[in-house]
């Protein structure tokens, strides 16, 4: 089955990103397809490569990047939500005249249409948030 996922909260404060990750890992294990993970609201904070958790804690951002690489999953940060919260890739950073970018590998920044398109294309849409 094809799953679309929306993650609406950032990492660490709320459990949503962990639940979403564990759900996705289990779905892949069972042979399902993850059509897209769309990060919205504070969920875009899942996509900053500057995250540096303590050694003995899970690295939520790195975990997403590795999942994307291993399973070729489409991880999309909403552009409007990302701009508000200071998450940018090199192009976005340049376009907005910023002096740095911080998007983690495996993510891409795109519009809200990606959420709608996932909702239409996926067999199941599952929302994780606060």
């Amino acid at each position: 089955m094809k799953f679309g996922i929306m993650v609406s909260e950032g990492p660490y404060t709320h459990q949503a990103a962990d639940t979403a990750y564990n759900f996705i890992a289990a779905a892949l294990e069972k042979g399902h397809e993850i059509y897209r993970v769309f990060f919205y609201h504070d969920g875009v904070n899942n996509g900053t490569r500057l995250t540096t958790p303590p050694q003995d804690d899970r690295n939520i951002v790195k975990r997403w990047s590795e999942l994307a690489e291993k399973h070729e999953i489409d991880l999309v940060l909403c552009v409007a939500a990302a701009q508000r919260r200071g998450i940018a890739d090199a192009d976005e950073s340049k376009r907005n005249g910023k002096d740095a970018d911080n998007m983690a590998p495996g993510f891409r920044i795109s519009g809200l249409g990606q959420l709608l398109e996932a909702s239409i294309q996926a067999d199941r849409m599952v929302v994780f948030g606060d």
């Binding site: 089955m1 759900f23 289990a26 779905a27 069972k30």
Partner: peptide, 11 residues
């Protein structure tokens, strides 16, 4: 249920 059971419920 475990996470796998969660996935099963959604299907």
């Amino acid at each position: 249920v475990d996470y796998s059971g969660f996935v099963d419920l959604t299907t």
